[in-house]
Design a protein around this nucleic acid. Structure first.
Lengths: 217, 217
DNA sequence: AGGATTGTTGGCCATGTGGCCAATAAAGAA
DNA sequence: TTCTTTATTGGCCACATGGCCAACAATCCT
């Protein structure tokens, strides 16, 4: 019921972009679509409608939908969360940085990212290219987290530990939080945000509420 | 390429079952299908093909596919994992019971359940009835886990804690493990199975490897 | 300016799905 | 036995998707 719009509206879009520009435009539209309506909404027709072009154009740049889904996911998740890590690095110490990361990451606000991650995990089981994108994104995240942990060790703020496996354990718990908060289970029963904070405090030998205070507002 | 079988093969199935029997048969077929090929394979045609009946029959008992998906999920996950908790209760002490639960739950073997959970979480975001089924299943699990924790407190095997929120935290970490093991990320880098064991040992004040020993074989 | 390159369009097909319905036949009731 | 009920069938429609392609036209090059 909302499929017709190209004939009535010329879309006022500059036609014949360079391949690089058009490709980037498609990826951004797909990523925005994934954040707003889920990764399942990333289809030839869906992206084309949002962009105001013909579905065949999208197919021209991504001859397989899976590739478009993978790119959309990657662009959607890597954009602002690498920024988050950069912000964390500029903060005073590792504890403050970690607190910042947790606050941004498991915010209870409208849940665009959580849904995208869940969608990606689901699709990864059946679509190899999405799986590869998810795998890469998670390894990248792990690397960034390891850097934070190593910084904390250098600054003597964290109890001694092996950053590599611990980072995986924290990410595992974090992804569990994504699942639970995305579902809205146990809402009102226990604050999901504090769950990960508790785990991290314990693992790093921090004093109670050293990280959970990030959610006090 | 495998859709034709009703005309050539009478399916040798007793026809005209009682509504209760047929309904149960459908649910079991749908659950088996969900475990083998994912919850997305639970369609009118899919279940009917597995059962050797007409798709219309399945629709006659479940006039909305969502209801069938929800029932399939519930039957698939509640069947054997309530049994696991019963087995745990019959074991010597709470620590042994918890160890048993972890071993069965996060086994690295063929991953039928993990996929089903992931599928359900994904579908729950868009299908209310599936969401209700998932919510109920998770609350049930939480209740069973709380019972185990309370038992451990009575037996003085666990450090003092509030079982209710702790059970949610453990389940959160556990679901994170499901995500990671389902993806096969970090395979060979860190043993995902031990992640949840570490968290639990820490939270309950158990000595190192008290639970992780469940994975030594 | 004219021609070649290629970004772009609109439409087409096959497939799989949910949902619906009249016709059929099997089981139980009279 | 015959009649009534209803479990069951097979086919139908509308819709959305992935993928493909010939024709069109804007831009760049000569």
């Amino acid at each position: 019921m909302k499929s017709r719009m190209s004939a009535t509206q010329p879309t006022a879009r500059s036609r014949r972009l360079s391949p690089a520009e058009r490709r980037q435009e498609i990826i951004e539209a797909a990523a925005a679509l994934a954040l707003e309506e889920g990764l399942a909404a990333v289809t030839y027709r869906g992206v084309a409608a949002r962009l105001g072009c013909a579905p065949g154009l999208v197919h021209h740049y991504f001859d397989v939908v899976e590739a478009l889904e993978a790119e959309a996911f990657t662009h959607a998740v890597t954009t602002d969360f690498e920024r988050t890590f950069e912000e964390a690095e500029e903060l005073g110490d590792a504890v403050a940085g970690l607190r910042h990361i947790l606050r941004v990451w498991v915010s209870e606000s409208p849940e665009p990212h959580k849904t995208v991650w869940l969608d990606a995990w689901y699709l990864a089981a059946r679509k190899p290219r999405v799986h590869a994108a998810v795998d890469h994104a998670m390894r990248t995240t792990h690397g960034l987290l390891v850097a934070v942990l190593e910084r904390g060790l250098r600054e003597d703020r964290f109890a001694p530990h092996d950053p590599d496996p611990l980072a995986w354990q924290l990410l595992t718990a974090l992804d569990g939080v994504i699942v639970h908060s995305s579902l809205g289970v146990n809402r009102g029963i226990v604050d999901v945000r504090r769950t990960i904070a508790r785990f991290t405090e314990t693992a790093l030998g921090l004093e109670r509420d050293a990280l959970a205070s990030a959610f006090d507002n």
